[in-house]
Simulated scan of single mutants.
Amino acid sequence: MGLARTPLDIDSVSVIVVDDARFTCEMIRRMLKGAGYHDIRVANSAHQALEMMRERKANILLADWLMPEVDGLDLTRQVRQFDEETNHYTYVVLLTAKEGVESLTEAFTHGVDDFINKSPDNKELLARINAAGRISSLQNALLKANQRLTELNRLHEERHSFDTITGLGNRAYLERQLDNLLRHVEARGGAACVAAIRINDFPKLVARYGEAVGREVLEAAANRLQQSTRPLDVVTRIDQACFGVLMNQEDLEQCHPNAFRRIHQALNLRAYKTSAGFLSIGAAVSICGLGATEESERPEPGEIIDFVSRHLGEAQLTGRVHMVEWRHRAPG
């Protein structure tokens, strides 16, 4: 119903006619040109047609079923692969002398959209081509709209993956990076080292000095973290006063408190310069290492982050980098 009412913009429809019989190609080209089509390309082999498509996509491919070397069905298969790679839709019509349900089933199984007897009535062929043009135009418009929607969703996700105060990635970003690293470790070995870092007594600090000073402390802590980590380490802010750091180590032995000593010292040994003066503020650091596991046993990133964060109280009490061994928390 909607298709029938959709006007066809012939000027925007590109047609490729492919047949090893030059006379057939020329006859169809003249018929289409007489009907108002302008973008018509003619190929005398499937290889030539594919080259034309790679140079510039087509809306409609009108091809002979029986051709030497590559027939219409194999050509259709390659066109469908090309469409998948380029996010495009090519409407394929085969010209054939074959008849019967078996031929129809064979054609549709291979991805053919329509087929018509060879040497058809011009009116019937033109009607099929006009319908193909409308369907292809609508389908490609939908593909472009979906692609644009996907891009907008990706941009939306990226914008919502970063903390507005520190400019660091947020918890969602850390979870994605941790999931990627766990898969990498599973495939290639090594270890993922996860750290949770919390500014001690941050709510009390904000209550005493105000949110502006709290923001200054967070920004300073973020800068110190970035200066104390390696270029490929992931530094994020995952909660109000909690940061997350992700390191890719060669093995679990390297996921050791010594690897985070510099971070601990950077956050704890120097006072923070704020608009309220220099403030001595501590930070707790809890870390956990994970090696390769079977995919079925791989923990969820959020579960790991929560596990490490639960040990921050112990880290604050000891005043040192607190190492915890990963233990899966049973449900309930």
Rank of each mutant, 00 (worst) to 15 (best):
L32W: 03
H184L: 12
A145T: 14
G100P: 15
I40T: 07
S286D: 04
R188W: 13
L205P: 02
N223C: 09
C255D: 04
A212I: 09
N268T: 07
F260N: 02
D114N: 15
H322K: 00
A292M: 02
P257F: 02
Q227P: 01
L95P: 02
D74Q: 12
Q227G: 03
I287L: 15
C25E: 05
E85L: 13
G289I: 03
A207Q: 13
L66I: 11
R77G: 08
M31D: 06
Y209C: 00
T6D: 00
L279A: 02
F108K: 12
E325R: 13
E325P: 14
R159P: 04
A283V: 01
L125R: 03
K273Q: 14
V79E: 04
A4P: 13
I116M: 03
V194G: 05
L267V: 02
I40W: 15
L142V: 11
C255E: 05
G244A: 05
V213S: 02
Q254F: 07
A212N: 13
I28E: 04
T166V: 02
A46E: 07
A241T: 05
N146W: 14
E106Y: 06
D11H: 06
G277R: 08
V101T: 14
E69V: 09
C255V: 07
D39W: 14
A222G: 09
D83L: 00
T86R: 08
A172E: 12
A43L: 01
M53I: 15
L95Y: 00
R215D: 12
P203D: 06
A4Q: 12
L75R: 06
N248C: 15
D39A: 14
F278Y: 14
L252F: 10
Q240K: 09
R148W: 02
R128W: 08
V92Q: 04
A292S: 07
V70H: 02
C288V: 03
E253Q: 11
F23C: 04
M31R: 09
N153G: 15
L225V: 06
H322Y: 11
M67T: 05
D71Y: 05
R237L: 04
S119P: 11
Q78G: 03
G36Q: 02
E303C: 12
R30S: 11
N258T: 08
V70L: 05
L252M: 13
Y209D: 01
L312C: 01
A63F: 00
V321L: 05
A276M: 05
M323Q: 12
